[in-house]
């Protein structure tokens, strides 16, 4: 199984001002890394999910996500936005954005990884470390430690 996240999937300085834009920026990284086949199709799936219920949660977090036929590997894209981007959370814009991409027919072990990741997001210490991370490599290392315990 490929790495959940690599340095090229991290953007610590997102410039987009709305959720469509930052989601697309991160999705492009996934496409660039060969994790997503059809970028437009994947974005459409993300929009469909987002339309059901915004994915922002309190504490400045946005987690655009979708199970999509256009995704080849379960993948996490991570971005940080200085100014914040509205993801529909009631307490304000999101500064940490996690783009979670799951393949349509993914096996259980893939999805278990994503479930473990989602659980870690609820830990304040993890969020703080991600806010403090100085470069893409340390984000990748943090995720690996937290999710896989290695």
């Amino acid at each position: 199984m490929a790495e959940l996240i690599t340095a090229e999937l991290v953007d610590l300085d997102l410039h987009g001002s709305d959720r469509e834009e930052v989601t697309a920026d991160l999705a492009k990284r996934l496409a660039g890394a060969g994790r997503v086949g059809d970028l437009d199709g994947f974005l459409a799936d993300l929009r469909e999910r987002e339309a059901q219920m915004p994915t922002g949660i309190e504490g400045g977090i946005g987690i655009p996500h979708a199970r999509s036929a256009h995704v080849t590997e379960p993948t996490l894209g991570f971005g940080r936005s200085e100014s914040g981007v509205d993801f529909g959370a009631s307490d304000g814009p999101a500064h940490l954005i996690f783009l979670i991409a799951a393949p349509e027919g993914g096996g259980d072990e893939h999805l278990t990884v994503l479930g473990a990741l989602a659980r870690r997001l609820m830990h304040q210490s993890f969020r703080q470390s991600l806010l403090d991370a100085s470069d893409a490599e340390s984000v990748v290392r943090l995720v690996r430690e937290e999710v896989f315990g290695q």
């Binding site: 219920m53 949660i57 987690i63 199970r67 979670i100 799951a102 989602a118 659980r119």
Partner: peptide, 29 residues
């Protein structure tokens, strides 16, 4: 709806909150 993120975050949050309040909880995701 998607079953890859919120389901697990909610489970984790409930476990944390229950433990913090001194209760036991078992969560089915």
């Amino acid at each position: 709806p998607t079953g890859i993120a919120h389901t697990y975050m909610a489970a984790e949050a409930l476990e944390q909150a229950a433990t913090a309040a001194g209760h036991e909880i078992a969560v089915e995701t």
